[in-house]
Design a binder for these strands. Sequence first.
DNA 1: GCAAGTACTTACCTGAAAGTAGGGTGCTTA
DNA 2: TAAGCACCCTACTTTCAGGTAAGTACTTGC
Lengths: 111, 111
Amino acid sequence: MQYPIGHPQCPVRRALNLIGSRWKVLLIQHLSGGTRRYGELKRLIPDISEKMLINELKELVGYGLAAKQAYPEIPPRVEYSLTDKGRQALPVVASIIAFGLQNLADEPVAA
Amino acid sequence: MQYPIGHPQCPVRRALNLIGSRWKVLLIQHLSGGTRRYGELKRLIPDISEKMLINELKELVGYGLAAKQAYPEIPPRVEYSLTDKGRQALPVVASIIAFGLQNLADEPVAA
DNA sequence: GCAAGTACTTACCTGAAAGTAGGGTGCTTA
DNA sequence: TAAGCACCCTACTTTCAGGTAAGTACTTGC
């Protein structure tokens, strides 16, 4: 079944607007296990820059996919978790991982 | 379950390398119904530029996700279809559509 | 006193993705 | 005579995702 691709509310485009970056997919994957702190995510995704980590988290929170809980302590503690809406994206992440695994088996990683 | 994100063969990154652009997702969706001609795809995705259409199709063929069949006729006829490997990506596309539909229902499209 | 950890912000810069614009072929229809 | 379809290719340009680097505020530990 096809959807009206050119339509302003095309579901594919709508979805990609929300989670269409590699960092968002990785972040949602890591948040799927539960609440994670800022520094934890940074360690889990070593090659993301601080700027991108902050930006992407801010966007996820802005879209209502993730929730941010800040504790006014010293040193500061900030925790991120998926909202119900964010958990709706988990099937996407799961299928991406499944597809990636199939293709890892298929052939060696090419440049 | 988490996978080694920094790992060179991280399945998420591998998958996004193959189908991580909006055009590829849209093209795979439209090829899911069967064989499609070049001009047909162009009409189905009105706002893709010719350059992008050619480029993305070429990459899909290069990755082994799609097959190209050219008929040396006048006027020329070129048909594209998904390979078995390309069909492995269909669950990703399906879950993206499902997620997009859920979020269309949630709220109006924001700028 | 100085580094190190925690959670950011700001400014600047680069490189790749994508859009724009035009060319080319070889036939058909008006 | 030119207009149009179908299937591309090439060069130029813009836009944006993303990286680099530095600063903030406060505290603990050597």
